[in-house]
Design a protein around this nucleic acid. Structure first.
Lengths: 96, 96
DNA sequence: CAACTATTTGGCAATTTGGCAAAATAGTAC
DNA sequence: GTACTATTTTGCCAAATTGCCAAATAGTTG
């Protein structure tokens, strides 16, 4: 039982987990608007840059974002664009 | 910055976080098929019943499931049915 | 090469999570 | 009331997460 649950739901749960942090969800949506380097995201988020970098690696490991080096900076982009459409029942609390 | 990110994305991130565990994601989908008591879910999941109960309380706190007492057992139901439609880009790794 | 910028990595402490077992709670039935 | 069933809560512990700082890495510029 346990193994099969992990098999079928594990991957999707991992993506949800990656999005399950306000900063990371914000970053994903921000990258949906336009690609950005870590420093831009740090300015928007306000955390230490190392913290932002770690959030980005979580998102990358989940397959949600990708990155490309451009000069001496690294540009992140939203790989799983469908993430933008995921809305947990709009304004929930009411949603159905 | 931080505060506004929390404000706008905090609630939705909390819902993602609740779904970000294979067992909880499974439970949500199972409740999408039909309502069930804790003991049924325990049988399906295979964890200790106290563990299942805790997962359910996480889902309830996130507003994803709800429960009704019926006799001496508590029947859980999927409150946020839209959860069933959320698929992080189908089979991702490839998705767009 | 050195100096500089951008990013990641490696601690580290504080907090949270996941899971089980035992105790507590809520209801049913006698 | 007691005995029983179903569920939740508590305590405990190991493991994971979060966020900062400092150090390391990658690239640019002179």
């Amino acid at each position: 039982m346990k193994a099969s649950i992990l098999g079928v739901y594990g991957r999707e749960a991992a993506a949800f987990k990656a999005l399950g942090h306000p900063t990371r969800l914000f970053i994903a949506h921000q990258l949906g608007r336009r690609d950005a380097c870590v420093c831009e995201l740090r300015d928007l988020v306000g955390d230490d840059i190392s913290t932002v970098s770690k959030h980005l690696s979580v998102l990358r490991n989940a397959g949600i974002v990708d990155s490309v080096r451009k000069g001496n900076q690294i540009i992140y982009n939203l790989k799983l664009r469908c993430v933008l459409n995921i809305r947990v029942c709009g304004n929930f609390g009411g949603g159905k």
